[in-house]
Design a protein around this nucleic acid. Structure first.
Length: 294
DNA sequence: AGTTGTCAAGCTAGT
DNA sequence: ACTAGCTTGACAACT
C-alpha cells in the first residue's frame, strides 16, 4: 500500500509545470522548460523516497505542447539520457507512477476532432511513460467523458473508440468514476465491454454514489485490475468544509483517513491523495499507515 | 518589483 | 447566450 500526491511539491521550491505561451512558441524555450521540468521531477521523486512516499502523479505539463501540432521537436531522443536516468530512479525505488490528462481528453465526444486531439494527448502520455521505460503498472487515468443527452449512446461511443486505441495506449489507460456524470456502475459496465481497469475515486463515489459502500465499491473496482496492471490505484480526498460540494480538502483529516483505512481493511491498493497541501498530507498519511500496520 | 488578466484543448449546469 | 468550475498555477504584459 503506497501513498502518493499529484504533480506539485510545495516544500522543495521547484516546479515541473513550467510552460510558456503558445503565441511565443520557440524550440529553444521548449528545451529549457523541459530541462527544468525534468530536473524538478527527479528532485521531487528524491524528496518522496526520503519520506517513504512511493506513489507519484507526474504532471501532464512536463513537456509543454507535447500533443500540439506546433511541437515537432523530438524530445524523447533529445532527452533520452535524462529520461532514462529518471526511469532508473523510479524502478530502483519501486515508485508507482500515474498521470492524469486534463479535461480535454474526451474519447466519447461526438466531435471527431476532439476525439483525435484526445488520442494525440494519450499518445504523448504513453510515449513519456515508455521513454521512462516503466512497466504496464504505470497508468494514465481518464474519465469516460460527456453525456450529450444520451448516456447509453455516449457509453457505447467510449467503448467503440477505446477499442480502436493501439496497444501501447490500451495497456496504460484506466477509467475513473467522476463526481457528476459517470459513477462506479457506469465504469464497471465499460470494463465489462473493454477490460479497462477501473480506478476507484473514493470522494467522487460519495458525490456520485452507487448502492455500494466504500468497501464494496473498492472491492468491485479492484477486481478489474489484472496482475500485470499492478496493485489497484485509488484516489482519495474529502470535502472541504464550507466550500461547494466536490471541493477538495485543504489538508488530510487523520481521524477520517484512519476510519477509511479500517473500512477498506484487507484490500491492497495504492492511494493517491488529492489533497491541496500535497506532500504535507502525504507525509502524515505515510505515518498513519505505518502506525496502522503495527 | 509588484500586480493582474490570461492561458491549446471540453463539458455541464446554472444564470 | 454566456460563464464558472474543474487540479490551480504561473506566464507575460502591464504598472
Amino acid at each position: 500500500m503506497k501513498i502518493g500526491y499529484p504533480c506539485i511539491n510545495r516544500t522543495i521550491g521547484c516546479t515541473s509545470n513550467a510552460t510558456f505561451r503558445l503565441a511565443s512558441y520557440a524550440e529553444e524555450k521548449l528545451v529549457k522548460k523541459i530541462e527544468s521540468n525534468l530536473d524538478c521531477v527527479l528532485r521531487m521523486l528524491q524528496f518522496n523516497v526520503a519520506h517513504d512516499i512511493l506513489f507519484f502523479r507526474i504532471s501532464s505539463d512536463i513537456i509543454p505542447f507535447a500533443s500540439h501540432p506546433i511541437c515537432t521537436f523530438d524530445w524523447p531522443t533529445h532527452f533520452q539520457d535524462t529520461l532514462a536516468n529518471i526511469g532508473r530512479f523510479i524502478r530502483k525505488h519501486s515508485i508507482r507512477i500515474s498521470m492524469h490528462p486534463d479535461q480535454f481528453v474526451v474519447l466519447n465526444s461526438p466531435d471527431l476532432l476532439v476525439v483525435y486531439n484526445s488520442f494525440r494527448e494519450l499518445k504523448y502520455h504513453c510515449f513519456l511513460l515508455d521513454a521512462l521505460d516503466l512497466p504496464q503498472t504505470a497508468k494514465v487515468q481518464i474519465h469516460i467523458g460527456g453525456v450529450y443527452g444520451d448516456k447509453t449512446k455516449a457509453l457505447n461511443r467510449f467503448v467503440a473508440t477505446y477499442n480502436t486505441l493501439p496497444k501501447f495506449i490500451k495497456k496504460r489507460v484506466v477509467i475513473e468514476n467522476d463526481d457528476r456524470l459517470y459513477n462506479l456502475n457506469d465504469c464497471l459496465r465499460v470494463h465489462e465491454q473493454t477490460g479497462v481497469p477501473v480506478l476507484f475515486d473514493v470522494f467522487h463515489h460519495k458525490c456520485n454514489p452507487t448502492k455500494d459502500s466504500v468497501a464494496s465499491g473498492l472491492k468491485r473496482a479492484a477486481a478489474t485490475w489484472k496482475k500485470k496492471d499492478g496493485v489497484p490505484m485509488i484516489d482519495y480526498s474529502a470535502q472541504e468544509k464550507g466550500k461547494r460540494p466536490g471541493a477538495h480538502a485543504e489538508q488530510i483529516n487523520s481521524g477520517q483517513f484512519k476510519k477509511f483505512l479500517k473500512q477498506i481493511h484487507g484490500v491492497d491498493c495504492d492511494i493517491m491523495l488529492e489533497i491541496k497541501d500535497k506532500e504535507k498530507s502525504a507525509i502524515k498519511a505515510v505515518k498513519i499507515i505505518s502506525d496502522f500496520r503495527l
